[in-house]
């Protein structure tokens, strides 16, 4: 291959690839000047944006500091956190049941599960919450008690968010179960493992690998999604800061307070997901 001499005119023609004096020729990777230029431009723009945020007094960072750990904000944060936990737990419990129904051999159970997911995924969560909030108009009394007394705003928030969550959780769990090789179930059957044992020891642990990433997504989505309950006057994180700025008109700094808390909690959850994923990757040979 004498074409080397064409590509590198500085190499003496007499040399050739085999005749370099200092051992084999050194390999020089491509130089990507464009990458450097792009990085510089992006960093400069980022710096300008950051500067404008920090130096703009309208952001009122001192007010952000004042309210960041105020009692009412922390109460709202606490409500958002436990509401998220309750909705995730109930939603996934119901979702797992729906997924099991959908994968069962009973056509009635399959159809009901399908219909549930179809209905609750079709309804915007905001519409659903408002609907539940006005359920008293349809059923003025439940179990002999006035509906408005039985179902307070927080209960309605839990019901509405859980039913919505379950529809999505059902699909996530179903996808996880379908990702498990059918041979695994057959091997467990051949070894005489009972149905529950097969689920608990063989199918679910393997399905978790496919369930955890989208479930982590849903957890973060739910945490932020709980802010929607502010429309039915549940005092979550967002509603707490709204109560303050309706009084003081410091809208921007108080929205920043809420935003920063959502970012902090989301980051913690993301870190937690890393460890959960590592746990379920046992034996996969990829992680660890």
């Amino acid at each position: 291959m004498s074409s080397d001499t064409l590509a590198h005119p500085k190499v003496p023609a007499a040399g050739g690839p085999t005749a370099s004096p200092g051992g084999p020729p050194r390999i020089v990777p491509q130089r990507r000047y464009g990458q450097w230029a792009a990085a510089l431009v992006v960093l400069a723009l980022l710096g300008l944006a950051l500067n404008s945020v920090v130096r703009n007094d309208a952001f009122q960072w001192d007010v952000v500091g004042d309210y960041f750990t105020s009692a009412s904000v922390l109460r709202g944060l606490w409500l958002s956190l436990w509401l998220t936990a309750v909705v995730m737990a109930l939603g996934f419990a119901l979702g797992t049941l729906l997924a099991a129904m959908r994968l069962s051999t009973n056509p009635v159970l399959r159809a009901v599960s399908w219909g549930y997911v179809w209905l609750f995924r079709s309804m915007p969560i905001l519409v659903q919450l408002l609907f539940w909030f006005n359920i008293g108009a349809l059923y003025p009394q439940l179990f002999g008690v006035k509906t408005v007394d039985l179902l307070g705003p927080v209960t309605i928030a839990i019901i509405g968010l859980t039913l919505h969550e379950a529809a999505y959780a059902a699909e996530v769990v179903r996808g996880g179960i379908l990702s498990v090789d059918a041979g695994q179930i057959e091997a467990a059957q051949a070894l005489g493992l009972g149905r529950l044992r097969r689920w608990r020891r063989i199918v679910l642990p393997q399905a978790m690998r496919a369930i955890v990433p989208p479930a982590g997504n849903m957890l973060i989505g739910t945490l932020k999604g709980t802010s929607i309950v502010s429309v039915i006057a549940v005092q979550d994180l967002l509603y707490s800061v709204q109560l303050v700025y309706h009084r003081t008109y410091q809208v921007i700094p108080l929205l920043l307070v809420a935003t920063l808390w959502y970012v902090v909690v989301t980051s913690v959850l993301g870190a937690g997901q890393f460890y959960v994923e590592r746990h379920y990757a046992r034996g996969s040979g990829r992680a660890r």
Partner: peptide, 21 residues
């Protein structure tokens, strides 16, 4: 299942449980 415990089955693709030691 009880009958199967008396009949060992070895599969072409092993079907070991990958998440267990």
């Amino acid at each position: 299942l009880r009958q199967r415990t008396r009949i060992g089955f070895v599969f072409q693709n092993f079907h070991l449980f990958p998440h267990l030691t």
